[in-house]
């Protein structure tokens, strides 16, 4: 499903009184990372103050404490408004979901189709999707031109090995 409404720009963080959908879950996940980090650090050598486990343990403890504090803050905030849509719509609006899926497919296709073919397909499909199915010819030409420049510059000028 594609969402046509323009979601909020998230490039700048603004503290809010109302919590965002899934904020509690994200804080729980953060806390869990800290707990698991500490748990696995317990399996490392810990016989002295200079043991390899010292920093992993300190870092994990700080993550756990910060995660718990973020969780407490998130719980205190007011619930998200009823019209804020589902959690899934908030996390992955249509364009993000599609491009993310495309990116995963692109990464999987890279070793098999190699750089030129997989990148061309990714760019064309991505541009056509973002143009809402219009400007197909423009997308085909821009993608081909961009790819030609990228390959010429990276492969032959900078001698970079492409996937």
């Amino acid at each position: 499903m594609r969402t046509e409404s323009a979601p909020q720009d998230l490039s700048v963080y603004v503290p809010e009184k109302v919590r965002r959908p899934g904020e509690i879950g994200f804080a729980v996940l953060g806390t869990l990372i800290g707990v698991l980090g500490y748990y696995f650090a317990m399996g490392m050598t810990s016989d002295s103050y200079s043991a390899p486990s010292v920093f992993p343990k300190i870092a994990s403890a700080v993550i756990t404490a910060c995660g718990a504090a973020s969780l407490a803050k998130a719980i205190k905030r007011a619930k998200p408004p009823a019209n804020s849509g589902t959690l899934f719509q908030f996390l992955l609006p249509g364009d993000v979901l599609f491009m993310l899926a495309m990116l995963v497919v692109y990464c999987l296709a890279l070793p098999k189709l190699h750089f030129i073919l997989s990148s061309y397909a990714f760019m064309v499909v991505g541009m056509v999707w973002l143009h809402r199915g219009k400007k197909i010819l423009q997308s085909l030409i821009i993608s081909a031109g961009t790819l030609a420049v990228l390959v010429a510059v990276f492969r032959y000028v900078f001698l970079v090995i492409l996937p």
């Binding site: 491009m99 990116l103 990148s119 143009h131 990228l150």
Partner: peptide, 13 residues
């Protein structure tokens, strides 16, 4: 719609 797919390709390279 044009620059973002290109940025992803550059990131991959």
């Amino acid at each position: 719609s044009i620059i973002m797919p290109i940025i992803i390709i550059l990131s991959v390279i």
